[in-house]
Amino acid sequence: MSTHSETNTHIGNSLSLKRIGLWVFILSETFLFGALISTRYYLQGVERPDHLNQPLGLVISIVLLMSSLAAYRGEVAVSYNDQKKFRINIISTIILASIFLVGVGWEWYEAFQYFPPSSAFGTIFFTMTGIHAFHVLTGMIALIIIVKMGSDGRFNSNSYWGVEGVVKYWHFVDVAWVFIYPTLYLVN
């Protein structure tokens, strides 16, 4: 009686339920990033300033994609109950993500000089990278939580939804960058 939903057999325990919930959430977030990308074209067309730091943009994109690979390796490891490999991979994901955020910070520092938020391209640039960086940050917090949960021994090869959910979200954040990167850096 007292712990209503928690004792209940089919709510909160079904994996397909959680998966579908996550996919609905990802569908919802897709509309946010869709709106972001459309706004860029609506306001600026395909204009792009010359002062974008192209090498840095490429490097942080690669770093972020590498982090997705590490996250995937982490998920596979936990599915084989390899706790050590799981930890190493998820912690590398977090490190790569921090490198990505430092890179974005560096970009912002340079962008302030050439196209500040009070210019048209700056508005787009800071908003897109800012909203994306916010998602990276939330993903990192989630990754830290699953490392903690993993070290408490709460995942094994039969039950690792926490890892699966967070890693799926992490892939989504990376895929979003795969669309944002060309929209900001390559289109001309």
Binding site: S28, E29, L32, A35, T39, L43, S118, G122, T123, T127
Partner: peptide, 20 residues
């Protein structure tokens, strides 16, 4: 999500001095 982004743009224009 789309209207949330619209409202966020107005907030950014007001608070962060952006020019949407």
């Amino acid at each position: 999500q789309v209207v949330a982004f619209g409202l966020l743009m107005v907030i950014l224009d007001r608070v962060a001095g952006m020019v949407f």
